[in-house]
């Protein structure tokens, strides 16, 4: 059983179809980047996984339990699935410490003393031990995002979802957030990181980010074109949109497709077209 099992999910906002027949399995410990153009449904997929958005059909199972059923216990689910948002979304009226402990004390019923202890641990992990008593508006964007990561971590979730967490940050602040992620990745928590929009430039930046986050994986960040990287080694594929985009169908596929990049099993899928990924999965 995989940690996340997404099967034939359809999701639309009114007339607008956002996810169309999306299937994806994620194993415990795997790190997946979902990459796609703006509006391709990356965030939506992540938000469906923790039940923030309903789906129209298909199933999403997390840890063996169905997420989008009527009787889903979202409160329990969300203790196991943390999400970090693009715009941090810290609670501005609470100190950093309270931001982290509120879910612990209210949802998990952890005694305050113990919750404060946990807060001190996670805030140290993200390198902000001296900011426990600060309010969010006293912190920089990068620091706020690290607090948001800590808030999520404090619940010790089995899965972390990162929804475009660096795209609201100034370039010089991105590094500190990624370093925190790299440390987390070493601890082996399953992460689904919603990645950078695909343009030639940002795709390269993503490769940069991934290789920085996960040393040891064989991506050369120095200006390699996508074709040059693929295929690098056994079991590693990089598919750029130039390689796999069927002609004529570009528009429809781009909108509905997305790119999972899995590094956990030395598998790297990059595509904008879900059916191609499924094809690859089938032929594994």
């Amino acid at each position: 059983m995989s940690l996340i099992e997404i099967e034939n999910v359809y999701k639309s906002y009114g007339q607008l179809e956002v996810l169309r027949d999306v299937s994806l399995n994620v194993e415990t410990g795997e790190i997946i980047a979902i990459i796609g153009r703006s509006g391709s449904g990356k965030s939506t997929l992540l938000r469906c996984i923790n039940g923030l958005e309903p789906i129209q059909s298909g199933t999403i199972r997390f840890d063996g339990e169905q997420v989008n059923a009527l009787d889903t216990n979202l409160r329990q689910l969300r203790q196991k699935v943390g999400i970090v948002f693009q715009s941090f979304n810290l609670f501005p009226h609470m100190t950093v410490e309270r931001n982290i402990t509120v879910a612990l004390t209210v949802v998990k019923k952890v005694p305050l003393v113990q919750a404060n202890e946990i807060a001190r641990n996670v805030i140290t992990q993200v390198g902000l031990a001296d900011k426990l008593n600060a309010y969010p508006d006293m912190l920089s964007g990068g620091q706020q995002q690290r607090v948001a990561i800590a808030r999520s971590l404090a619940m010790s979730p089995k899965l972390m979802l990162f929804d475009e967490i660096t795209s609201a940050l100034d370039p010089e602040l991105i590094g500190e957030v990624l370093r925190v992620l790299a440390n987390l990745a070493k601890d082996g928590m399953t992460m689904a990181k919603n990645g950078v929009r695909v343009s030639a430039l940002s795709f390269e930046r993503l490769l940069d980010e991934l290789s920085e986050t996960l040393p040891g994986y064989l991506l050369d960040p120095k200006g390699q074109s996508l074709q040059a990287i693929a295929p690098v080694e056994d079991g590693v594929f990089v598919l750029s949109d130039q390689l796999v985009m069927p002609k004529n169908s570009r528009k429809g596929l781009v909108r509905k497709g997305f790119l999972p990049v899995s590094l956990g099993k030395t598998m790297l899928f990059a595509s904008q077209c879900i059916s191609v990924i499924q094809g690859l999965r089938g032929s594994e």
């Binding site: 923030l52 969300r78 948002f85 810290l90 879910a103 949802v107 999520s152």
Partner: peptide, 16 residues
């Protein structure tokens, strides 16, 4: 709306 989402995503009920 993001404050509602953020608080929902850490497991708080509507009342909380």
């Amino acid at each position: 709306k993001t404050q509602w989402e953020a608080s929902a995503s850490i497991g708080l009920s509507t009342i909380e």
